[in-house]
Design a binder for these strands. Structure first.
Lengths: 156, 156
DNA sequence: TATTGTTATACTCTATAACTATA
DNA sequence: TATAGTTATAGAGTATAACAATA
């Protein structure tokens, strides 16, 4: 009753060219690969500043929100509080940011850029802006705008 | 010569609502957040099958490329060989895949789905297809198609 | 000499529990 | 009782070096 299937097939199939068409049709696969590609360029261009993407995000948020607290940074960036501690300590040791007591809540600490931190962040933001056009190399400005609009629709 | 800057400012600024507009204008920031959002949904929907995204990708590639080797999987998915070993071992222990010696290269091993693996992968791919419309909830089918096209332009 | 698959290992990223000081 | 910040620690994920078998 089971003669149709040889246990160890005499001609085992092999693969010359891998067919990835199925995965390439999935949003998750494409979103992840695109994110990794852009972040790779980001990492490379930010390394002269000694900044990882997350360091850049923190400095930029502090620049545009002087006095922001660790808790607010965590909520904005999806970082867990214990994982932000070392990051902020390093930026403080590098004298890029300063802690100042919160004027109305003695539990909280406001974060501020030092003059050196402000200069570095301004330069890094300029690099980030240039990087956009490179990372999205084959996208026209209109396509880039559309892409960002559609990405926001996915996660907001 | 240095009287203009009070050491501890009398009115330290605080932040009510965090201004994230700058980061929201960057492609990398949006691509990463969108990818994480989609992957979160993916992880949740695939958990009944006991599959992480990478397990799904491997099974799907084996399904569409019977006899694919570990080396080819690594190249297709951007996984390093040492990190694929445990993954493939687990899928084999669960009797979802089978190793068969490569017919022409005794160093290599071809990977194949077992009947149970084929059934699971087929069901998981159906779930993945349904998931697309949910993960991209507020996107129209046309927008989803545009988004995938633009994402490919970024990383290809 | 180069490649496939593998082990061992280290490093980063992310996650959880628990503490302190303030509210 | 709840929150801000912190410590310690555990678990993923990702990286490099080196090896045996085969090409």
């Amino acid at each position: 009753m089971s003669a149709a299937q040889p246990a160890s097939s005499p001609d085992v199939p092999t693969v010359e060219q891998v067919d990835t068409r199925y995965l390439e049709g999935l949003l998750g696969y494409n979103a992840r690969r695109a994110a990794l590609a852009v972040i790779d360029v980001f990492v490379e261009r930010m390394s002269p500043y000694g900044l990882r993407p997350v360091d850049f995000s923190v400095l930029s948020l502090i620049r545009h929100n002087p006095g922001i607290t660790s808790r607010q940074l965590c909520a904005s960036l999806g970082i867990l509080p214990p994982n932000l501690v070392g990051l902020v300590n390093n930026l403080e040791k590098r004298e890029l940011i300063q802690r100042q007591p919160h004027p109305r809540d003695r539990r909280a600490v406001g974060l501020h850029l030092t003059p050196a931190g402000a200069a570095l962040t301004e330069a890094a933001e300029k690099t980030a802006a240039e990087l956009e056009s490179d990372a999205a190399g084959r996208l026209s400005p209109a396509e880039l705008k559309t892409l960002i609009r559609l990405l926001k629709k996915v996660y907001l």
